[in-house]
Design a protein around this nucleic acid. Structure first.
Lengths: 350, 350
DNA sequence: AGAGTTTACTGAACCGGTTCAGTGACGGGA
DNA sequence: TCCCGTCACTGAACCGGTTCAGTAAACTCT
């Protein structure tokens, strides 16, 4: 139906081979002929068929991303859209597209990777939300699918990683709170099965330990608003409740802040709160959220580039370290209350 | 590298053609031979190459989605992730994948569609965020790319639409507020270039007109938190300010609610607020948001199915109408204040 | 039993590119 | 002037499937 390379060859009075050379900048055709072929191709509106190209070159010209999050969470977590936008920024400059899979049902994740690998739909994948002892590493190895991981997996991984350290940000948040006089600093963590859930928790622990404070006020949640509320409620029920809570993401922080306010606590008067990600909405909360400003778009850009480099063999094999995100102080953090607010504590205990 | 159909043919002692027939359930092979071929294929772990398949069948086995939103907005709008998850639900049952493009820069959108169409990367696309006199309709026609649209474009469109009416929800919200005694009901609309921005505004106007109320309290925003704040500020500055605001989405409602509170207004004591979408976070706001509960996942599922049907010729060509979303009353709406809160008005005017 | 039909399969062409071996023309060096 | 090397290009094979025309054997019918 569409115009093929044979049409161009015929119109230009040369063979298919010559056209192929001319269009790919390969030697083997004179400049005059090359120019003529290019002109004819343009006049005819020829566009190379990706399918045919892929068949002979054994490439898919596509990268894969499997997202295995609960769609509920996906919906409000600003990470992925920005991350994907970053990937696209890189891909737009190359002849690649992004194939996205969302795996919600259990078991769907492995099926998704197999689906991408089996028919040769993608040339490589970007692995996000790396988990403790992540089984996908072995899977991708088995499927012989090139990959890059976001952050370095704790089990061995043969794939290059693109890392954005979250230690610095959390440390800065804790130090900021300590500087404000807080000593009871809690942490509402993301699911600890994720390595970024773990590393944020460890960073919080270390920062407290460095000042000799106890890291007893931990509650595990799942990065969702619902989980954030539950974990916050748990921490506020404790006898010696926190005067500040460091959350592992903005969504939980927002939900926790709202919950605390609904229990009669003032933020930051009775409770200081920090988030993580610097989602757009954080600056429009009441009070605006102190958070850690990450750059998922850049992360996506770099990860896609690393994968492309790996595919065409120009990758060094070394991990890439992106600049660590930094603390953004807004109005949800303030000085430690002089004495615990008994009224609020009582309410929170109910 | 991988095992091909020729390997299977050789191992089974038949020709390539026979293998192809056997594997596709076509007649032309005896049951005995078919069984043998299937067994051999299984033993060898043969997976058909999508590329080769696509070349001969002239299909890409992929659907395209171009998202042309500001990544900032994308990040917090819960629509897309859930919508995409819905698409995946359908695609998982078919041998199709989703190719996602995010177009952020101006002009990138058209380039993205061309990129998908040119190499034959996708067999069809789903058109979201339809705009007034949407130029993409003509573009897709020119590119001969099959499509379905989300809601029916206001300019003529040859593509089937999958619609989810937003009139009922907005109408219900306005009627709910009227029942609570409100007469000054404002609307913070999304960008009016979008048809869903327009239809929500019109629904608000009609619902007010039906009760003889004036629809003068309109402010256009852009579906972002920042825009929501600006529009809310504008409405609250008006001499005869609203006692209730109907927002075109949750994000603006959240931001507007926070802004009003920061100006000393109580929600819903001084100002009632409604959103649209029922994003997860809305129930964890303080107060929880009265909103309209949509089902983007179902929308994605149905839209993908409609496109697939169209591609294999089984589509009726008629538009599909999904069940209209319904109002979900929570605590951000309440009775109209007895008299305008002078203190708050003064603050809001500052 | 002979003619006609059906079944089961083969071989080759084809999809639209890439790539490699081969060929004729031309230029340069001795 | 002859020989060799280079250049510019052609023709064909190839990637891994699908599909069509052709064929031999088995089956049906009278």
């Amino acid at each position: 139906m569409a115009v093929t390379i044979s049409d161009v060859a015929q119109a230009a009075g040369v063979s298919k081979g010559a056209v192929s050379y001319a269009l790919n900048g390969q030697p083997g055709v004179s400049d005059a002929t090359r120019g003529r072929i290019l002109q004819v191709a343009k006049d005819l509106g020829w566009k190379p068929s990706l399918r045919a190209k892929g068949l002979s070159s054994a490439k898919a010209y596509a990268l894969g991303l499997v997202v295995a999050r609960d769609p509920k969470l996906l919906g409000t977590d600003p990470f992925f859209p920005a991350f994907i936008a970053g990937i696209e920024t890189t891909l737009a400059e190359h002849d690649y597209t992004l194939v996205l899979s969302v795996a919600t049902a259990p078991g769907a994740e492995e099926r998704a990777y197999r689906k991408l690998a089996d028919g040769g739909r993608v040339d490589g994948v970007i692995l996000t939300d790396v988990r403790h002892n992540d089984s996908r590493i072995g899977l991708l190895r088995e499927l012989k699918l090139p990959a890059v991981t976001l952050n370095r997996p704790d089990s061995g991984s043969p794939f290059p990683a693109v890392s954005m350290d979250d230690t610095d940000g959390i440390t800065a948040a804790v130090e900021h709170l300590i500087a404000l006089g807080h000593v009871r600093i809690g942490h509402v963590g993301g699911a600890q099965e994720y390595i970024h859930g773990r590393s944020r928790r460890r960073a919080w622990e270390s920062a407290l330990a460095a000042t000799g404070l106890a890291a007893d006020l931990f509650a595990e949640a799942d990065f969702t608003a619902r989980g954030g509320v539950a974990a916050t409620a748990e921490l506020l029920r404790r006898a010696d409740r926190p005067t500040a809570i460091v959350y592992a993401n903005d969504l939980m922080a927002m939900a926790g802040q709202s919950y605390a306010q609904s229990q009669g606590l003032s933020v930051p008067g009775d409770l200081s709160v920090t988030g993580y990600d610097n989602a757009e909405f954080t600056q429009y909360l009441n009070p605006p959220l102190t958070t850690i400003s990450t750059d998922p778009m850049r992360w996506g850009r770099v990860a896609a580039q690393a994968l492309l480099d790996q595919l065409n063999g120009t990758h060094s094999g070394k991990d890439t370290d992106l600049q660590a995100p930094s603390l953004l102080v807004r109005a949800s953090t303030g000085p430690v209350p002089a004495t615990p607010n008994q009224h609020a504590t009582k309410q929170a205990n109910q």
